[in-house]
Amino acid sequence: MSTLSSRAISGRRAVLVIYATIVALAALFGALVGLVLPGKENAPEMAGFGPFVFEITPLNFAVYGAVNVGLLLGVLLLLMAAVSKKYPNA
């Protein structure tokens, strides 16, 4: 049954692919939210976070989502990479 083990791939590449996928999903998610929000009653014109304020459009929200999630998970990813470098055998 040894044929069952398919060829190995690098774990780093897999993690980065998952990261990229989730950021892409966040962009898609932002775009869809940008699409549905203006249709609601009493929806605001503008949205944003801190000093960054922008109009609610699919594109703006897609960028917003991708940047936010990309930064947040990116920081965690860097932290993870640092920890695993420091304790390779934990």
């Binding site: 190995a8 780093r12 897999a14 695993s84």
Partner: peptide, 22 residues
């Protein structure tokens, strides 16, 4: 965090059980 770190330093075999874990 721990699962991702396990993946990060690993060499992955993408069998079905592994795919479902990911």
């Amino acid at each position: 965090f721990n699962w991702i770190t396990t993946l990060w330093n690993g060499s992955l075999r993408l069998n079905t059980p592994m795919l479902f874990c990911i």
